[in-house]
Design a protein around this nucleic acid. Sequence first.
RNA 1: UUCAGGUUGUUUU
Length: 299
Amino acid sequence: IFVQNSFIDLFSKCLDPNSSRKVFDEMPHRDLVTYNSMISAHAKAGDPDAARELFDGMASPDVISYNAVLDGYARAGRADEAFSVFEHMPARTVVSWTTVVSGYIKAGDLVMARMLYDRMPHRNLVSWTIMIVGYTERGLIDEASALLDRMVGVEGLRPDEVAVLSLVSACGESGVLGFGRRVHGHINNAPALRKSTRVSNALVDMYSKCGCIDEAVKVFESIPNKDTISWNVMLQGLANHGHGRQALGLFARMQDAANVLPDGVTFVGVLCACARAGLVDEGLRHFTSMQSKHGVAPK
RNA sequence: UUCAGGUUGUUUU
């Protein structure tokens, strides 16, 4: 039963709820974890109704079953339904609260999200991150800034890698350069974050999206171990800024670099750069070599 | 073995 439960979980992580469900349906005996894993599989796949249906058939759900149902509604932006389940829970954990808050954020109701957030009996780094990222995505920088200050200054919590990745990415999406620079400051004060290639990649992308291609290049060149994503974000940044030739030059450098191989995303960037620079023949050449030389198939 | 935040994508996303 442990093995089958693990398979349900594995398929759910591949966003393949049908395979999860097949294992679930064929199991002769199921336990609580079986149900919880399957509810979560439906929730992650964006099917809160299927999650709820399974949940309703359970004789004695535990808090994880409830939380998985909340997650389904939250991901779908159905915050009010999440809340009404939440209200009827016999016991709640910090995950329950955080999930409902994220549902309101997803639904765009930052006021309700904040109200619940303020009523939480306990908050952890995840709760803080979700709320701050929620504000940042909507460009509500005063609120985001104030919360970040309180989190670091009053609570003494330090953002971890996931927190800064989410924050930096949200800054890029909403184009809030000033706040992004502040987050960059926090990163520079934490050696583990400063050394992280993933974090640097997110910064390169953020500066590009905020229109600061020079700063993006500066961060990019400072990365000692550039991975495929580092090259991809820089390439796209140059292409989006209309620097098609420089983007293609970067692609040439990438091919000489050790330990990295171009992937499908790289070629979208390369072809985009060609399209924007009007380089039809060169684009066609890259499209051909993509398949013959790099083994990347068009999708 | 199961629950909340995770960096790169061409299009009016």
